[in-house]
């Protein structure tokens, strides 16, 4: 569960009011699109969830973690409950697909036995079993993003958070990727996807939270991406 309660965020460096008053609840197992124009504060919401930034006021709950009280030392453990995917993939170039996944598991101290079992399963899930020994620059953008999703998934997080995961992909790859995210969601992982792509959102009939200028403008089940109406 992710809960935002009247969250306000002002960036200290330039006093930008990125979020004014954001409230919503995402229950376990939901699939939610977060949409809104550029600069509306979508990435800021993601950064608050991952504790990369701290809120100025309000309250955020992420699973068992109350971010208002979260001590710095606990941040890594919060992040282990989240799988994070970015537009630019962020793979390690000098490690293979398998190496990237293994690295993510080592980092959180998984034993070898678990690593050996988990990686083939996750690679199969994202359809990349054949590419396990390729380096990131040897595979396509869509495949790289699937590796990033596999990495987000490999430590068995409760929630996957994706910030414009299809931003660098053509429409067809984007659609495939969204289908993959839907499949992962159906296996039990909560999904929060930030996107700009109207057609894609309208295709999937999921809950859509729209924000603009730091405020929630609509929050609807089976919603459409349509911020022109605002």
């Amino acid at each position: 569960m992710i809960q935002f309660n009247h969250v306000k965020k002002i960036y200290e460096s330039n006093l930008t009011h990125a979020l004014h008053d954001i409230s919503f609840v995402i229950e376990d197992g939901e699939f939610v699109f977060l949409v809104g124009p550029s600069g509306s504060g979508k990435s800021t919401i993601i950064k608050l969830i991952t504790a990369e930034e701290r809120m100025t006021s309000g309250g955020i709950l992420v699973g068992d973690y109350d971010l208002a009280k979260l001590r710095k030392r606990k941040v890594p453990y919060l992040r282990r409950t989240l799988g994070i995917v970015f537009q630019d993939f962020r793979l390690i170039e000098n490690r293979t697909v398998r190496g990237n996944l293994e690295f993510a598991m080592r980092v959180v101290g998984s034993p070898n036995k678990v690593i050996k079992e988990r990686i083939p399963y996750v690679l199969d899930l994202v359809g990349l079993s054949e590419k396990a020994d390729c380096y990131p620059n040897e595979i396509s953008g869509g495949e790289q993003q699937r590796v990033a999703i596999a990495r987000a998934l490999v430590n068995n997080p409760k929630t996957i958070i994706a910030d414009e995961p299809t931003g660098n992909l053509d429409p067809e790859r984007s659609y495939e990727l969204m289908c993959l995210l839907e499949k992962i969601n159906q296996l039990g992982t909560t999904m929060l996807v930030v996107t700009h792509e109207r057609d894609l959102v309208n295709c999937f009939n999921k809950r859509v939270i729209s924000i603009d200028k730091g405020l929630v403008t609509s929050d609807m089940e089976n919603g459409l991406y349509d911020y022109e109406t605002i």
């Binding site: 991952t50 030392r73 890594p76 453990y77 919060l78 992040r79 282990r80 994070i84 962020r90 390690i92 690295f103 993510a104 980092v107 959180v108 101290g109 990495r151 430590n155």
Partner: peptide, 16 residues
Amino acid sequence: EGEIAIMKMVGATNAF
């Protein structure tokens, strides 16, 4: 830096 950022993202402790 990229690698370190990724480590932090997937939940590496500072000690690690």
